[in-house]
């Protein structure tokens, strides 16, 4: 009952927003409709455009490319982050020597790298993958580093008393502990992989969702921009849903997450 009420309220908020948007852009209340429609389009136009994009099949190619970039950026970023996170956590000296450089690299706003990557890797998908990589790598790196360093000393001592060697400790203790931390940041890092892809496309490409939005923007096609944003939102929600499914499968051993446990 309570849950039904919540869903109804959620729908009501969305509907109210759309209604407000519709009324303000279809009736000359604040300004002539020509003006408001030029700046804000109308909800019905946007929905019609979204429908047209999907119906004509145009959008699938762009979605596919953005998806590929996101997946590749995440895979490389997570792989690199895990590798270096492990290495640095187990080798104190390495971590100490590289510490200032990692902090400096992480402090850099990644957007400024986009033109460089476009120069190095061209306007195809790889410059976007590189941009996403720089975002995902640091998130996973810091989480894995932390995870390995903060393995419960009791669990570790117990495993050592069971006569596990370094390789077995790695497999049964360090690795699962690091994975837990990595998965706790999974939503964030997948989100950042997507941000890298879309921002990269936006700044220079010939395909992808970012490109679609940029293209519409350059001819003042506000309806097209909003339609692109709606499609992007749907895409993000779907990806997040898949991530949640994966997370639930891989972390079955964890106690049920608290309701506000998503970060």
């Amino acid at each position: 009952m309570n849950r039904l009420k919540l869903i109804l309220l959620q729908v009501a908020v969305g509907f109210g927003f759309l209604l407000l948007w519709h009324v303000l852009t279809n009736y000359p209340i604040l300004a002539p409709t020509r003006q408001t429609q030029f700046f804000f389009s109308t909800p019905l136009d946007v929905l019609a455009r979204v429908w047209k994009e999907f119906a004509s099949g145009e959008i699938w190619r762009h979605l596919w490319i953005t998806l590929m970039e996101t997946i590749l950026a995440f895979a490389f970023g997570a792989g690199g982050g895990i590798l270096f996170g492990f290495l640095f956590a187990r080798r104190e000296l390495l971590a100490a020597v590289f510490d200032p450089y990692i902090k400096a690299a992480n402090a850099l706003p990644r957007v400024v790298l986009a033109p460089i990557f476009a120069l190095w890797f061209g306007l195809g998908i790889w410059s976007k993958v590189a941009l996403g990589f720089t975002l995902v790598f640091f998130i996973v790196f810091f989480n894995v580093y932390q995870g390995v360093r903060e393995v419960s000393p009791v669990v570790l001592a117990n495993a050592r008393m069971l006569c596990m060697n370094e390789r077995q400790l790695l497999r049964h203790v360090y690795w699962p502990a690091a994975l837990t931390w990595m998965f706790s940041s999974l939503h964030t890092s997948v989100g950042f992989a997507l941000v890298g892809a879309v921002v990269g496309e936006y700044l220079g490409s010939s395909a992808g969702l970012g490109y679609k939005i940029h293209e519409a923007e350059s001819v003042f096609d506000v309806t097209g921009v909003f339609a692109g944003m709606v499609i992007l939102s749907i895409f993000v929600i779907l990806i997040d849903f898949v991530v949640t499914l994966i997370e639930r499968r891989l972390l079955v051993w964890r106690p049920a997450p608290s309701t506000n446990g998503q970060g």
């Binding site: 009791v154 001592a157 117990n158 049964h172 203790v173 051993w253």
Partner: peptide
């Protein structure tokens, strides 16, 4: 020697069976 700790020392990511069986791996 075997050691029984005061705190929880089981690997939380393994089931009871896996936790006990892994002790034989070494």
């Amino acid at each position: 020697a075997g050691y029984l700790f005061q705190q929880d020392a089981l690997m939380p990511w393994k089931t009871a069976l896996q936790n006990v069986a892994v002790a034989l791996e070494p």
